[in-house]
Amino acid sequence: MVEIAVLLKQVPDTNAKIVVVNGRVDESAIASWVTSPYDEYAFEAALQHTEAAGGSITAITLGPARADKVLKDAAALGVTKLVRIWQDDWQDLDSNQVQSALANAVTAAGADLVYCGKQSADRNQGSTGPGIAEILGAACITEVSESDSAGSYLRPTASGSERVTVSSPAVVTFTKTQNELRRPNVRGIMMAKRAQIEVVGGDVSASQVNFNGHSSPAQKPPGKTYEGSDSVPEVVGLLRDEAKVL
């Protein structure tokens, strides 16, 4: 029997158009929000782990009310323990604050293992999993691409791969795995209708990072056009020496 806390972050759909207004991302312009893709791999791994070994999952998110959606989606896959961490006066939490709020919820959930994505699709900091492990004094295994219910994890690297086993408590962060998050079914969705989400606040220390502003990526410079067969040598030269694609 294993208790797994799965951390699910709600992020803008990876195809959503991001608009910056007055130096800040305009959330109201984001048409659709989804669960961060790496978190979905972590979630599927947790579902398979508890199915094989017995135990249960607590799904935890940190975010405003709209983030309930990721927990409802988790409920549709059978998770009954759902926690959203938020306080209305929170804004621009820094990594330390996020990690400590999540670590508190993990402790309250009595979890042996924490499964989460290696990084979120919006901020891409990659600090949450390791930071929580640090706070909890837990082992941390990052960028896992394969896992099993015996606590064995595979980490791919450029030069090969590494297989490790770990005893709990441990935090495991997932990269892409072979197992996409399963689809719910109508029965699960109807169960999710009755799902109870526990909303908790928390004491977080003052932020050490000041938010100064968002900005959109710089406009791409216009492309260059070459015409006629005379320009072939020049183009080949540029592709080889400048673009380094040949």
Binding site: K69, D73, A76, R183, P184, N185, V186, I189, A192, K193
Partner: peptide, 10 residues
């Protein structure tokens, strides 16, 4: 409803 949206997305 939330559930109808979940069914749609599924």
């Amino acid at each position: 409803t939330d559930e109808e949206i979940m069914v749609r997305d599924m």
